[in-house]
Design a protein around this nucleic acid. Structure first.
Lengths: 213, 213
DNA sequence: CCCGGCATCAATCAAAAGGTGGAAGCCGGG
DNA sequence: CCCGGCTTCCACCTTTTGATTGATGCCGGG
């Protein structure tokens, strides 16, 4: 790989100091990379991505704070001439992956990726091409192949509340629905997931990463 | 802090290359630390802890592979003149914390700890004193204060199967019990956790790290 | 423009789960 | 040795959940 005249300018966003240091250490050795900043919050990532001249943002998905990585990704990619966003996360729930891609992320990597893979993904992203980790790509393929597993937005919402331990009555109040509607959603969820009870639905959905645990 | 004549010799065990690099970067700057090796598996950690002369092992809990960090911790601390083990993890389920401490870990840290805290914990561990992250210490205090939260072995077993999505009938068959007994266990579980349904029991228990998710 | 999926609701019946109040044997600690 | 917690079980009753069937309005793609 030849070293280009202008280096790829990177912004790192992760709430773990150790991970930021690790990314710095791994990426700084690449001659064509320049790390312009690293920040511990999604808010700062949004702010700096706008202020500084950045090519690629490496963004964690789960921050300790309130703003989600996917929201930050959406904010960053919304503006003109926005940098590419490479999502970098540990665990991979289907919902998160889809949220990130919908938010405009150019790529999606797992933190256990080897350094070379990481560097390659950054270059791919800088070139404007999408970079998905093999495990993630597989997930998406599975998703495409079995569209039955895809829960609708509302269904996911209901199932998440079920997983939080709410009864049908509580869910109906929370979402301003009748219990009949909640039951109806659940029937559809069960048939899509191939189960026949709320607990097994939660187990199946968490297993597939459809909802947060 | 004065620099001792002999540095503290460290072994890093984490399956994420980025985290290993980050720990190296953060800890290498400390003049009294010497990193003798970093490994990506629990098995290698056990092997090297025995071969090399190590003072403190920084051990991740969740490895991608089969061996658990807590098992590795137990293996390492079992032998004579064993190094201290500092457990370093992202998420903190009560079960994991207790398992690690029972396995002989000297300390328990969260990965979002700032570098200074990390270094301080390593020195504390090297001196043979226990090092617990504030959040973890809090957890343990809570645990002590509210013994009602402690489920019995059998109750935990039942609740785990509930979380896996089994019905009372399925659980009774699996454990060779009558449904009456399963119900009885569940009633006790509900009162201990302060809930009134299986789904909320699962939610509460996973929230407190009482069962695997 | 029409079909299908989504979201909303109703009614009814059957099954599962939860609540209550026991009871018995086992085992370990004060 | 006796008390209390754990584990096992029973019966009865209420509430919740699941299964079925059917209906309405909305919206987006072929």
């Amino acid at each position: 790989m030849t070293v280009p005249e202008s280096p790829i300018r990177l912004l790192l966003a992760d709430d773990h100091p150790v991970v930021r240091a690790g990314l710095r250490a791994v990426l700084e050795t690449e001659p064509d990379f320049e790390i312009v900043a690293d920040v511990p919050t999604a808010e700062q990532a949004v702010a700096l991505a706008a202020q500084l001249d950045v090519d690629v943002v490496l963004m964690d998905l789960q921050f300790g704070g309130r703003m989600l990585g996917s929201q930050a990704t959406a904010s960053i990619t919304a503006r003109e001439g926005a940098p590419r966003v490479l999502v970098l996360t540990t665990y991979d729930t289907d919902a998160d992956i889809l949220a990130a891609i919908e938010a405009g992320a150019t790529g999606y990597l797992l933190k256990d990726a080897p350094p070379e893979e990481l560097a390659a993904a950054v270059r791919t992203a800088a070139a404007g091409k999408s970079a998905l980790a093999p495990a993630i790509a597989l997930r998406l393929m599975d998703r495409m192949r079995a569209p039955a597993t895809a829960l609708s937005r509302r269904e996911t919402e209901v199932l998440q509340l079920v997983a939080d331990g709410l009864s049908n009555a509580q869910i109906s109040k929370r979402l301003f629905l009748s219990q009949a509607t909640v039951k109806s959603h659940l029937v559809h969820i069960y048939s899509k997931l191939g189960v026949d009870s709320r607990t097994s639905a939660v187990a199946a959905a968490t297993g597939q990463g459809l909802i947060r645990r």
